[in-house]
Protein backbone atom coordinates (compact mmCIF):
# COMPACT_ATOMS: atom_id res chain seq x y z
CA UNK A 1 0.00 0.00 0.00
CA UNK A 2 1.21 3.45 -0.82
CA UNK A 3 2.63 5.60 1.97
CA UNK A 4 0.78 8.71 3.03
CA UNK A 5 -2.59 7.08 3.44
CA UNK A 6 -4.25 8.01 6.69
CA UNK A 7 -5.00 5.41 9.35
CA UNK A 8 -8.71 5.86 8.84
CA UNK A 9 -8.44 5.07 5.15
CA UNK A 10 -6.24 2.10 5.85
CA UNK A 11 -8.78 0.73 8.30
CA UNK A 12 -11.59 1.22 5.79
CA UNK A 13 -9.69 -0.55 3.02
CA UNK A 14 -8.72 -3.42 5.27
CA UNK A 15 -12.26 -3.82 6.55
CA UNK A 16 -13.76 -3.84 3.07
CA UNK A 17 -11.21 -6.34 1.83
CA UNK A 18 -11.82 -8.67 4.75
CA UNK A 19 -15.58 -8.43 4.24
CA UNK A 20 -15.24 -9.22 0.53
CA UNK A 21 -13.01 -12.20 1.19
CA UNK A 22 -15.35 -13.48 3.88
CA UNK A 23 -18.35 -13.22 1.56
CA UNK A 24 -16.63 -15.01 -1.28
CA UNK A 25 -15.35 -17.70 1.06
CA UNK A 26 -18.85 -18.12 2.48
CA UNK A 27 -20.45 -18.39 -0.95
CA UNK A 28 -17.88 -20.85 -2.25
CA UNK A 29 -17.92 -22.82 1.00
CA UNK A 30 -21.69 -23.04 0.88
CA UNK A 31 -21.64 -24.56 -2.61
CA UNK A 32 -18.90 -26.96 -1.63
CA UNK A 33 -20.78 -28.00 1.50
CA UNK A 34 -24.10 -28.49 -0.31
CA UNK A 35 -22.58 -30.58 -3.09
CA UNK A 36 -20.43 -32.78 -0.86
CA UNK A 37 -23.13 -33.20 1.80
CA UNK A 38 -25.78 -34.29 -0.69
CA UNK A 39 -23.35 -36.57 -2.53
CA UNK A 40 -22.02 -38.12 0.65
CA UNK A 41 -25.50 -38.81 1.96
CA UNK A 42 -27.08 -39.76 -1.34
CA UNK A 43 -24.59 -41.74 -3.41
CA UNK A 44 -24.36 -44.69 -0.98
CA UNK A 45 -28.17 -44.97 -1.08
CA UNK A 46 -28.28 -45.41 -4.85
CA UNK A 47 -28.59 -49.03 -5.84
CA UNK A 48 -29.47 -50.91 -8.99
CA UNK A 49 -32.69 -52.03 -7.36
CA UNK A 50 -33.67 -48.44 -6.54
CA UNK A 51 -33.12 -47.29 -10.09
CA UNK A 52 -34.88 -50.12 -11.90
CA UNK A 53 -37.96 -51.01 -9.84
CA UNK A 54 -41.20 -49.33 -8.94
CA UNK A 55 -42.41 -48.85 -5.38
CA UNK A 56 -44.78 -51.42 -3.94
CA UNK A 57 -46.65 -51.20 -0.67
CA UNK A 58 -47.01 -55.00 -0.56
CA UNK A 59 -43.32 -55.80 -0.54
CA UNK A 60 -42.27 -52.48 0.96
CA UNK A 61 -39.95 -52.00 -2.00
CA UNK A 62 -38.98 -48.47 -2.94
CA UNK A 63 -37.86 -47.82 -6.51
CA UNK A 64 -37.68 -44.63 -8.51
CA UNK A 65 -37.87 -46.00 -12.05
CA UNK A 66 -41.34 -44.49 -12.66
CA UNK A 67 -40.17 -41.10 -11.40
CA UNK A 68 -37.15 -41.18 -13.71
CA UNK A 69 -39.35 -42.08 -16.68
CA UNK A 70 -41.89 -39.41 -15.79
CA UNK A 71 -39.16 -36.80 -15.61
CA UNK A 72 -37.86 -37.82 -19.04
CA UNK A 73 -41.37 -37.80 -20.54
CA UNK A 74 -42.24 -34.42 -19.14
CA UNK A 75 -38.97 -32.91 -20.37
CA UNK A 76 -39.52 -34.28 -23.89
CA UNK A 77 -43.15 -33.19 -24.02
CA UNK A 78 -42.40 -29.71 -22.73
CA UNK A 79 -39.50 -29.21 -25.16
CA UNK A 80 -41.59 -30.34 -28.15
CA UNK A 81 -43.98 -27.48 -27.44
CA UNK A 82 -41.70 -24.83 -26.07
CA UNK A 83 -39.11 -24.84 -28.87
CA UNK A 84 -41.43 -23.84 -31.74
CA UNK A 85 -43.40 -21.44 -29.55
CA UNK A 86 -40.41 -19.70 -28.02
CA UNK A 87 -38.28 -19.63 -31.15
CA UNK A 88 -41.26 -18.54 -33.27
CA UNK A 89 -42.01 -15.67 -30.94
CA UNK A 90 -38.36 -14.63 -31.07
CA UNK A 91 -38.40 -14.72 -34.88
CA UNK A 92 -41.50 -12.58 -34.90
CA UNK A 93 -39.95 -10.02 -32.56
CA UNK A 94 -36.65 -9.87 -34.39
CA UNK A 95 -37.63 -10.34 -38.06
CA UNK A 96 -41.23 -9.30 -38.56
CA UNK A 97 -42.39 -6.87 -35.90
CA UNK A 98 -42.39 -3.25 -37.02
CA UNK A 99 -44.71 -1.90 -34.37
CA UNK A 100 -42.51 -0.80 -31.46
CA UNK A 101 -45.38 -0.69 -29.00
CA UNK A 102 -46.36 -4.26 -29.75
CA UNK A 103 -42.77 -5.38 -29.29
CA UNK A 104 -42.61 -3.60 -25.95
CA UNK A 105 -45.86 -5.25 -24.85
CA UNK A 106 -44.62 -8.72 -25.83
CA UNK A 107 -41.28 -8.21 -24.13
CA UNK A 108 -42.97 -6.93 -21.00
CA UNK A 109 -45.24 -9.97 -21.02
CA UNK A 110 -42.20 -12.27 -21.30
CA UNK A 111 -40.53 -10.49 -18.38
CA UNK A 112 -43.69 -10.80 -16.32
CA UNK A 113 -43.87 -14.52 -17.10
CA UNK A 114 -40.32 -15.08 -15.95
CA UNK A 115 -41.09 -13.40 -12.63
CA UNK A 116 -44.21 -15.36 -11.77
CA UNK A 117 -43.59 -17.93 -9.02
CA UNK A 118 -44.01 -21.57 -9.92
CA UNK A 119 -46.78 -22.16 -7.39
CA UNK A 120 -48.97 -19.74 -9.36
CA UNK A 121 -48.18 -21.59 -12.58
CA UNK A 122 -49.19 -24.78 -10.82
CA UNK A 123 -52.49 -23.27 -9.72
CA UNK A 124 -53.39 -21.81 -13.10
CA UNK A 125 -52.22 -24.98 -14.83
CA UNK A 126 -54.53 -26.95 -12.59
CA UNK A 127 -57.48 -24.63 -13.32
CA UNK A 128 -56.87 -24.31 -17.05
CA UNK A 129 -55.35 -27.57 -18.28
CA UNK A 130 -56.68 -30.05 -15.72
CA UNK A 131 -60.16 -28.65 -15.18
CA UNK A 132 -61.06 -26.38 -18.10
CA UNK A 133 -59.45 -28.47 -20.86
CA UNK A 134 -60.35 -31.63 -18.95
CA UNK A 135 -56.91 -33.24 -19.06
CA UNK A 136 -57.22 -34.34 -15.42
CA UNK A 137 -54.04 -34.58 -13.39
CA UNK A 138 -51.62 -35.81 -16.00
CA UNK A 139 -48.06 -35.47 -17.18
CA UNK A 140 -49.32 -33.66 -20.27
CA UNK A 141 -51.03 -31.01 -18.13
CA UNK A 142 -47.80 -30.68 -16.16
CA UNK A 143 -45.73 -30.42 -19.32
CA UNK A 144 -47.98 -27.72 -20.79
CA UNK A 145 -47.74 -25.74 -17.55
CA UNK A 146 -43.97 -25.98 -17.81
CA UNK A 147 -44.18 -24.80 -21.44
CA UNK A 148 -45.65 -21.48 -20.31
CA UNK A 149 -43.02 -21.26 -17.60
CA UNK A 150 -40.09 -21.83 -19.94
CA UNK A 151 -41.39 -19.77 -22.82
CA UNK A 152 -39.52 -16.62 -21.76
CA UNK A 153 -36.24 -18.54 -21.40
CA UNK A 154 -36.29 -19.95 -24.94
CA UNK A 155 -37.62 -16.65 -26.29
CA UNK A 156 -34.78 -14.69 -24.74
CA UNK A 157 -31.91 -16.99 -25.69
CA UNK A 158 -33.17 -17.28 -29.28
CA UNK A 159 -33.62 -13.53 -29.52
CA UNK A 160 -30.08 -12.96 -28.28
CA UNK A 161 -28.63 -15.20 -30.95
CA UNK A 162 -30.89 -13.80 -33.70
CA UNK A 163 -29.35 -10.43 -32.99
CA UNK A 164 -25.92 -11.85 -33.79
CA UNK A 165 -26.92 -13.05 -37.28
CA UNK A 166 -25.35 -10.40 -39.51
CA UNK A 167 -27.82 -8.16 -41.31
CA UNK A 168 -25.78 -8.56 -44.51
CA UNK A 169 -26.74 -12.27 -44.69
CA UNK A 170 -30.40 -11.33 -44.84
CA UNK A 171 -29.80 -8.57 -47.35
CA UNK A 172 -27.76 -10.93 -49.52
CA UNK A 173 -30.55 -13.49 -49.52
CA UNK A 174 -33.18 -10.87 -50.31
CA UNK A 175 -30.98 -9.54 -53.06
CA UNK A 176 -30.88 -12.98 -54.65
CA UNK A 177 -34.66 -12.82 -54.84
CA UNK A 178 -35.61 -15.01 -51.87
CA UNK A 179 -38.93 -14.35 -50.15
CA UNK A 180 -39.15 -13.49 -46.46
CA UNK A 181 -39.99 -17.00 -45.34
CA UNK A 182 -37.20 -18.50 -47.44
CA UNK A 183 -34.72 -16.10 -45.89
CA UNK A 184 -35.89 -17.01 -42.41
CA UNK A 185 -35.80 -20.73 -43.13
CA UNK A 186 -32.44 -20.88 -44.84
CA UNK A 187 -30.47 -18.01 -43.34
CA UNK A 188 -31.96 -16.79 -40.07
CA UNK A 189 -33.00 -20.02 -38.35
CA UNK A 190 -29.73 -21.89 -38.98
CA UNK A 191 -27.96 -18.86 -37.54
CA UNK A 192 -29.79 -19.02 -34.24
CA UNK A 193 -29.44 -22.74 -33.50
CA UNK A 194 -27.06 -21.96 -30.66
CA UNK A 195 -29.66 -19.79 -28.95
CA UNK A 196 -32.30 -22.46 -29.25
CA UNK A 197 -29.96 -25.13 -27.88
CA UNK A 198 -28.93 -22.93 -24.96
CA UNK A 199 -32.59 -22.22 -24.27
CA UNK A 200 -33.31 -25.94 -24.29
CA UNK A 201 -30.51 -26.72 -21.86
CA UNK A 202 -31.67 -24.00 -19.48
CA UNK A 203 -35.24 -25.24 -19.78
CA UNK A 204 -34.23 -28.82 -19.06
CA UNK A 205 -32.46 -27.61 -15.95
CA UNK A 206 -35.48 -25.70 -14.81
CA UNK A 207 -37.90 -28.54 -15.52
CA UNK A 208 -35.65 -30.96 -13.69
CA UNK A 209 -35.73 -28.77 -10.60
CA UNK A 210 -39.38 -27.81 -10.76
CA UNK A 211 -41.76 -29.12 -8.17
CA UNK A 212 -44.35 -26.57 -7.03
CA UNK A 213 -45.85 -26.22 -10.53
CA UNK A 214 -46.13 -29.98 -10.91
CA UNK A 215 -47.69 -30.92 -7.55
CA UNK A 216 -51.24 -30.17 -8.68
CA UNK A 217 -50.86 -30.59 -12.42
CA UNK A 218 -48.91 -33.84 -12.77
CA UNK A 219 -49.69 -35.50 -9.45
CA UNK A 220 -47.91 -38.08 -7.33
CA UNK A 221 -48.49 -41.48 -8.93
CA UNK A 222 -45.65 -43.99 -9.30
CA UNK A 223 -46.69 -46.25 -12.18
CA UNK A 224 -44.52 -47.32 -15.10
CA UNK A 225 -45.99 -46.38 -18.47
CA UNK A 226 -44.93 -45.95 -22.06
CA UNK A 227 -44.53 -42.42 -23.43
CA UNK A 228 -48.02 -41.69 -24.74
CA UNK A 229 -49.82 -43.63 -22.06
CA UNK A 230 -47.63 -41.89 -19.51
CA UNK A 231 -48.56 -38.44 -20.78
CA UNK A 232 -52.22 -39.16 -20.15
CA UNK A 233 -51.77 -40.45 -16.63
CA UNK A 234 -50.66 -38.81 -13.42
CA UNK A 235 -47.09 -39.24 -12.31
CA UNK A 236 -44.46 -37.78 -9.99
CA UNK A 237 -41.21 -36.43 -11.37
CA UNK A 238 -37.98 -36.89 -9.41
CA UNK A 239 -38.34 -33.61 -7.53
CA UNK A 240 -41.95 -34.26 -6.56
CA UNK A 241 -41.00 -37.78 -5.49
CA UNK A 242 -38.17 -36.32 -3.37
CA UNK A 243 -40.62 -33.98 -1.69
CA UNK A 244 -43.14 -36.74 -0.99
CA UNK A 245 -40.52 -39.17 0.33
CA UNK A 246 -38.89 -36.56 2.57
CA UNK A 247 -41.86 -34.57 3.82
CA UNK A 248 -44.77 -37.00 3.87
CA UNK A 249 -43.12 -40.39 4.34
CA UNK A 250 -39.90 -39.59 6.18
CA UNK A 251 -37.86 -41.81 3.82
CA UNK A 252 -34.74 -39.69 3.95
CA UNK A 253 -32.48 -42.34 2.39
CA UNK A 254 -34.47 -42.39 -0.85
CA UNK A 255 -34.84 -38.62 -0.71
CA UNK A 256 -31.07 -38.18 -0.54
CA UNK A 257 -30.54 -40.71 -3.32
CA UNK A 258 -32.85 -38.65 -5.55
CA UNK A 259 -31.17 -35.44 -4.39
CA UNK A 260 -27.77 -36.85 -5.36
CA UNK A 261 -29.09 -37.85 -8.79
CA UNK A 262 -30.58 -34.39 -9.27
CA UNK A 263 -27.33 -32.79 -8.14
CA UNK A 264 -25.29 -34.83 -10.64
CA UNK A 265 -27.73 -33.95 -13.43
CA UNK A 266 -27.65 -30.27 -12.46
CA UNK A 267 -23.87 -30.27 -12.62
CA UNK A 268 -23.95 -32.03 -16.00
CA UNK A 269 -26.44 -29.48 -17.38
CA UNK A 270 -24.28 -26.67 -16.07
CA UNK A 271 -21.29 -28.21 -17.84
CA UNK A 272 -23.25 -28.77 -21.05
CA UNK A 273 -24.42 -25.15 -21.11
CA UNK A 274 -20.84 -23.99 -20.64
CA UNK A 275 -19.44 -26.28 -23.37
CA UNK A 276 -22.17 -25.39 -25.86
CA UNK A 277 -21.61 -21.71 -25.23
CA UNK A 278 -17.88 -22.11 -25.75
CA UNK A 279 -18.30 -24.25 -28.89
CA UNK A 280 -20.61 -21.81 -30.62
CA UNK A 281 -18.54 -18.84 -29.61
CA UNK A 282 -15.48 -20.45 -31.17
CA UNK A 283 -17.40 -21.28 -34.34
CA UNK A 284 -18.68 -17.76 -34.61
CA UNK A 285 -15.26 -16.21 -34.13
CA UNK A 286 -13.82 -18.28 -36.99
Amino acid sequence: MQPGISKKRRAYILLMRILMWLSVALTAGLVLFLVTYVMAKGLPEISWNLLTTKPSYLSGNIGILPDILNTVYIIIAALIFVIPLGAGAAVYLNEYARNKKLVAVIEYAAETLSGIPSIIYGLVGMLFFCSFLDMQTSLLAGALTLVIMNLPTVLRTTQESLKTVPQSYREGAFGLGAGKWRVIRTVVLPGCVDGIITGCILSVGRILGESAALLFTAGFAHAVHGFFEGLNSAGATLTVALYVYAKEQGEFGVAFAIAAILMVLTLLIQLAAMLVGRYFKKRRDL
Partner: peptide, 26 residues
Protein backbone atom coordinates in the same frame (compact mmCIF):
# COMPACT_ATOMS: atom_id res chain seq x y z
CA UNK B 1 -10.71 -17.33 -8.89
CA UNK B 2 -13.42 -15.50 -10.78
CA UNK B 3 -14.02 -18.44 -13.13
CA UNK B 4 -14.21 -20.96 -10.30
CA UNK B 5 -16.45 -18.93 -8.00
CA UNK B 6 -18.75 -17.88 -10.87
CA UNK B 7 -19.19 -21.53 -11.80
CA UNK B 8 -19.93 -22.30 -8.15
CA UNK B 9 -22.56 -19.55 -8.06
CA UNK B 10 -24.27 -20.89 -11.16
CA UNK B 11 -24.32 -24.35 -9.57
CA UNK B 12 -26.07 -22.75 -6.63
CA UNK B 13 -28.65 -21.32 -9.03
CA UNK B 14 -29.26 -24.71 -10.60
CA UNK B 15 -29.87 -26.74 -7.46
CA UNK B 16 -33.57 -27.70 -7.27
CA UNK B 17 -35.51 -26.06 -4.45
CA UNK B 18 -36.54 -29.39 -2.96
CA UNK B 19 -32.87 -30.23 -2.46
CA UNK B 20 -32.45 -26.98 -0.51
CA UNK B 21 -35.51 -27.99 1.46
CA UNK B 22 -34.14 -31.45 2.18
CA UNK B 23 -30.76 -30.17 3.37
CA UNK B 24 -32.55 -27.51 5.39
CA UNK B 25 -34.74 -30.13 7.03
CA UNK B 26 -31.84 -32.31 8.08
Amino acid sequence: VKAVVSAAVSVLAGIPSVVYGLVGML
